[in-house]
Design a protein around this nucleic acid. Structure first.
Length: 552
RNA sequence: GCGCCCGUAGCUCAGUCGGAUAGAGCAACAGCCUUCUAAGCUGUGGGCCAGUGGUUCGAAUCCACUCGGGCGUACCA
C-alpha cells in the first residue's frame, strides 16, 4: 500500500526534479526506503550518495541541487531535508496519510490479500515423513514452514496444492516390521534378539503389546506373513499418529502422493529409459549410474539402481519431480531439512537434463532444530528412540505457540527450542502479545456496538495526528509489502516480525490514544483505525495458521 | 580434505545486493492500573558485529585467510 503510494506520488516528483537538475540519466537509480531511525523521517532516498561517483560532486551538493528543483504540495509532503552525508529525508503530509487510510478502508476485511499470483499453479511439498514413527520436532519445523509458505501463495492469488510425499514400502518399512516383531517376541522370550539398527522407540513396544493382546503368541514364528502383520500394524499406528499431529496443527494436505505410484505407473522405468536415450546413464560394477558430471562439471556421478536391482532414493526423487512438472505446476516448492543438501543439485540437474525448467523448482532447506532442556542439548533420533515428539510438544504448549515458535526464525539459522521456556513461560511468548492486541481491538469493537456507535465510511482521517497514530498507520500500510517480501524470499519469519511490530504499534496507540473515551469525529476515526488493525492482525495470524482470539 | 549454513547485547535472534548513532524480544533496573483487558505502556543500562588483513569517501555487510559450531560429502532416505 505504502509502496504504491510512494511510487505514484514521490517517484514522479523526484524524477522531475532530477531531470531539471541535470541527472536525467540516473533516474532509474532512484528509490525510497524507510529510515532505520524514525526521527529521520517517514521515507528517505540515498540517490545523492549513489550519484557521487558519476557526478564527481559531494553528495550533499547533489542533494541540494535536486531539492531546489522539487515541486510538491505541502499537504501531501510535509517536508524534505538533507541529512548526514547526503540522505534526503521526506516527511509525509496529512493528505498522504488520508490516502493511505482510504485505500486500506477499501480493502476491508480482506486487507493483505492480493492477486499478484494471477492464478498460477504452485505445488508446495512439505512434511513428507514416511510412516516409520511419530513426527519429531524437525518435522514440526518443516510442517509449519511449509504451511505458511502455502498460505502466503494462497493469499497472493496463486492456486496452491499442498502435497505430502511418502513411502510405505522399502527397507525402512521392512526394518520397522522386524523391529515390532522382535519386541513382540520379547514379550514371550526376553532373550529374543533385536535387529541391529532397528527402531528402538517406545511406540514399537506399544504396537507389539497391542499385537500380543489381539493375537496372543500366534505370531512368534518369524514368517513373512507374521512380519507383514507387524509391519502393517506399525504402519497403521504411525500413519494415525502423524494424521493426528497434523490435525492438531491444523494442517491439511490436498494430495498424499505415494512413492509406489511411480513404480506402478511406469514413471521409474520411463525415467531410466529417457536418461538412457540422452546417454546420461551407464553401468559400472553391476549398478546403474547417472552421469551427473556430464550435466554439470561440479557434480559427481551417483548410483541410481543398486547392484541388487533396487533403486536408490535419487531415482524416484527425479521421477517424482518430473511428475510434478507433468501436472503443470508453474512453481514447485520443496521443504527439506538441510540433511538433504547433497541430493538437491542432483535432482535439479537431472530434471533440467530431462527438459524441464529447473528455475521453477525452489528447494527450501531449513536448518535443524536443537532442543534444549535445562541448558543441555537433547539429541533427537527416531531410531535411538529417545525423542521428544511433536505430539508431546503440542500437548505441553499448544498449537498456536508451536506454530509461531517454529517460524520465528529465518529458515537458514538453527532454531533453538528451549523446552523449559516454552513450557513454563508460554505466557511470555510473542504469539500472545500479538493475539492480545487482536483481543483488545475486539473488545473495543464489541463495546462500540453495545453503545450503538455507528461505523461510518466517511471518516476525517486528518484528525489522526499523534505520533502513535501515525506510526500505526505506517506499519499498517506495509502489510502487503511484507507478505510479498516473505513470499519472494520464502521466509515466514518476516510475517512474525511484522506482526510483532504491528501489535507493538497498536499497544502503544491503545495506551496513548483513548478510543471510546473520546467524542465525536475523533472517536469515530479511531474506531476505524482499530478496525483496520483488526483486519491486518487477524489476516496476518491467519497466514501463520495461528488463531486470533476475540478475548483473552 | 572438499561443499553448504552459522558466529552480532547476559540469552535467543534481525540487519548481510556497502550508507546516518548496529536493532528487537527475553532477562536486569526504575516508573505507570478510580480509565476501551497491566498477557499492556514508558524510561535506563548493556556491543573491539569471532579474529587478522584487503577493497573505498564510507564495511556487521564485499574479497582473502584464520579460528570456532552445525550439516553434508553412501550401491541409507
Amino acid at each position: 500500500m505504502i509502496n504504491q503510494m510512494i511510487e505514484s506520488i514521490l517517484q514522479p516528483i523526484f524524477s522531475e526534479a532530477m531531470l531539471n537538475a541535470g541527472y536525467a540519466d540516473y533516474i532509474h537509480l532512484l528509490h525510497f526506503e524507510k529510515p532505520k531511525i524514525s526521527s529521520h523521517g517517514d521515507c528517505a532516498t540515498t540517490i545523492a550518495l549513489s550519484l557521487t561517483k558519476s557526478a564527481k560532486k559531494p553528495p550533499r551538493a547533489i542533494a541540494e541541487e535536486i531539492i531546489q528543483q522539487l515541486q510538491f504540495d505541502t499537504v501531501l509532503i510535509a517536508s524534505v531535508e538533507i541529512a548526514g552525508p547526503g540522505f534526503i529525508n521526506i516527511r509525509f503530509g496529512e493528505l498522504f496519510y488520508t490516502k493511505l487510510l482510504e485505500s486500506i478502508a477499501l480493502a476491508g476485511e480482506s486487507y493483505g490479500k492480493s492477486s499478484v499470483g494471477n492464478g498460477k499453479k504452485v505445488n508446495v511439498e512439505y512434511v513428507s515423513a514416511n510412516p516409520t514413527g511419530e513426527l519429531h520436532l524437525g518435522h514440526g519445523r518443516n510442517a509449519c514452514i511449509g504451511d505458511v509458505i502455502a498460505n502466503l501463495y494462497h493469499w497472493s492469488g496463486y492456486d496452491v496444492t499442498r502435497e505430502y510425499y511418502f513411502n510405505n514400502a522399502g527397507n525402512q518399512m521392512t526394518l520397522l516390521g522386524l523391529s515390532v516383531h522382535a519386541r513382540y517376541c520379547q514379550i514371550f522370550d526376553t532373550t529374543y534378539p533385536f535387529p541391529e539398527n532397528g527402531y528402538k522407540g517406545e511406540y514399537i513396544s506399544d504396537i507389539a503389546q497391542q499385537l500380543s493382546e489381539a493375537h496372543g503368541n500366534s505370531l512368534v514364528e518369524p514368517t513373512d506373513s507374521h512380519i507383514a502383520v507387524c509391519k502393517y500394524a506399525a504402519e497403521k499406528w504411525c500413519t494415525d499418529s502423524i494424521q493426528k499431529t497434523m490435525a492438531t496443527l491444523n494442517i491439511a494436505h490436498d494430495v498424499y502422493f505415494n512413492e509406489q505410484t511411480l513404480y506402478e505407473d511406469g514413471s521409474i522405468d520411463k525415467t531410466i529409459q529417457d536418461l538412457r536415450e540422452k546417454q546420461l546413464v551407464y553401468e559400472k560394477e553391476g549398478a546403474l549410474w547417472i552421469a551427473l558430471s556430464k550435466i554439470q562439471e561440479k557434480l559427481t556421478d551417483r548410483v541410481i539402481v543398486k547392484s541388487t536391482g533396487e533403486p536408490t532414493y535419487r531415482l524416484p526423487d527425479i521421477a517424482y519431480h518430473r511428475n510434478k512438472f507433468e501436472r503443470g505446476y508453474d512453481t514447485i516448492v520443496d521443504v527439506f531439512g538441510v540433511d538433504h543438501i547433497a541430493t538437491v543439485p542432483d535432482i535439479i540437474a537431472a530434471t533440467k537434463a530431462l527438459g524441464y525448467d529447473d528455475e521453477k523448482i525452489h528447494v527450501l532447506l531449513y536448518q535443524f532444530v536443537t532442543l534444549m532442556e535445562n541448558g543441555e542439548q537433547v539429541k533427537m533420533s527416531k531410531r535411538s528412540g529417545k525423542s521428544y515428539t511433536l505430539n508431546e510438544l503440542l500437548n505441553d504448549v499448544g498449537g498456536d505457540v508451536v506454530r509461531f515458535f517454529f517460524i520465528m526464525r529465518s529458515i537458514n539459522t538453527h532454531l533453538e527450542f528451549d523446552l523449559a521456556l516454552a513450557k513454563e513461560q508460554s505466557e511470555k511468548n510473542p504469539v500472545l502479545y500479538v493475539q492480545y492486541a487482536h483481543a483488545r481491538i475486539c473488545r473495543i469493537m464489541e463495546t462500540a456496538k453495545e453503545r450503538e456507535i455507528p461505523l461510518t465510511n466517511n471518516n476525517n482521517y486528518s484528525l489522526l495526528e499523534k505520533d502513535e497514530e501515525k506510526n500505526l498507520i505506517k506499519t499498517l500500510a506495509r502489510f502487503e509489502e511484507h507478505i510479498q517480501r516473505a513470499l519472494a524470499s520464502h521466509e515466514p519469519y518476516i510475517i512474525t516480525e511484522y506482526l510483532r511490530e504491528l501489535a507493538s504499534d497498536f499497544h502503544a496507540f491503545y495506551h496513548h490514544c483513548p478510543v471510546l473515551r473520546t467524542e465525536g469525529e475523533l472517536r469515530d476515526v479511531r474506531i476505524a483505525l482499530c478496525k483496520f488493525s483488526q483486519s491486518a492482525l487477524r489476516n496476518g495470524l491467519h497466514i501463520l495458521g495461528v488463531s486470533a482470539p476475540n478475548s483473552m
